[in-house]
């Protein structure tokens, strides 16, 4: 078999995958970009007028209009960024701490690793419902614990008040995603050279110093990948917000906002505009990801 034959057959093997991916990814994305310049509606998507960039920003009769001036979009943007940065920051710190803890040789380590997979394996919709029940203002177990412990005087409306609803959503995401970060970090910790640590122990180097000088630099590549993975996931988050609090202003993310415009309000043009802005935010973070991946040199 010549090299040329091999290359030809390679494209034949790639073709089915490429066709499917263009149908589910490339073409629909192109349509979204296209629709963001129209006023199409869901009732008849073929019946539309071009509005140029008016969905993004326009000016008429002395007033600016479009998405960039829309308080609802700005709110969704703020919520999304706040949620993504706060939850990923907590997940990273907590994930590393848990990985270090589980890496210690204690009885039942295998069981603990299994337990770490549980929050990750539970469907997000189920997690959202479980936590919504635990955080129920009247009958929830969380309020029950806080009342019994004398920490609060009256039950808190976890999902009913703006600040607490966002905090609750972050807490659920932390519960669900921290084990994932911890698992990746744990895998990295187990590849670290042991003699290095034995030498440090002999020299009597403080554990904190050892962590910041040796461990952290060595796990940094994996940690970077984990953080960017999580950031991408958090920025496009939909299910958690939608199931826990519906299309509530306090927790509305860009994905919830986009779907609300597109499906509930049937406004394909404006919904596509919201989706497009989210897409480009994701592209930016993905570019960071690829840049972070290169020095790893382990990509296929």
């Amino acid at each position: 078999m010549t090299a040329r034959n091999r290359r030809q057959s390679a494209w034949i093997f790639l073709a089915p995958m490429l066709i499917v991916l263009s149908l589910v990814a490339a073409w629909p994305l192109a349509r979204t970009l296209f629709y963001s310049t129209t006023n199409a509606t869901l009732i008849d998507m073929a019946d539309y007028d071009f509005v140029g960039l008016g969905n993004y920003l326009g000016y008429s009769n002395g007033r600016w209009y479009g998405l960039l001036t829309d308080p609802q979009w700005l709110l969704a943007l703020r919520n999304t960024l706040f949620f993504a940065f706060v939850s990923v920051a907590i997940e990273t710190v907590l994930g590393v701490a848990i990985a270090l803890l589980v890496n210690a040789r204690l009885p039942g380590r295998g069981l603990m690793r299994a337990a770490m997979l549980v929050p990750w394996a539970i469907p997000t919709v189920v997690s959202a419902k479980m936590w919504a029940w635990m955080l129920n203002d009247q009958f929830g177990i969380v309020n029950d614990m806080l009342l019994r412990g004398g920490i609060v005087e009256a039950p808190l409306a976890w999902l009913g008040s703006a600040g607490l609803a966002m905090a609750s959503m972050i807490a659920v995401d932390v519960w669900k995603a921290t084990p994932f970060v911890a698992m990746l970090v744990l895998a990295a910790l187990q590849t670290l050279p042991r003699d290095c640590y034995e030498a440090a122990q002999v020299d009597g180097i403080a554990p904190a110093k050892l962590f910041f000088r040796v461990t952290l630099p060595l796990i940094r590549p994996v940690l970077t990948v984990a953080v960017i993975f999580r950031l991408l996931d958090a920025m496009r988050m939909f299910d958690l917000a939608y199931v826990m609090t519906g299309t509530n202003d306090a927790t509305m993310t860009l994905s919830v906002h986009a779907r609300q415009q597109l499906v509930d309000f049937q406004d394909v043009g404006y919904g596509s505009t919201v989706s497009t802005t989210l897409f480009f935010m994701i592209v930016l973070v993905t570019a960071l990801y690829v840049a972070a991946l290169k020095p790893l040199g382990r990509n296929p």
């Binding site: 990814a25 994305l29 998507m45 919904g271 596509s272 993905t286």
Partner: peptide, 25 residues
């Protein structure tokens, strides 16, 4: 090609919702 495929896995689902709706219909 590999990086493009990796890029697709980063797509937010809402970014393809309208186009998929069209194909599905």
């Amino acid at each position: 090609l590999l990086y493009t495929i990796l890029g697709v896995s980063m797509f937010p689902q809402v970014a393809v919702l309208a186009g998929l709706f069209e194909i599905v219909r």
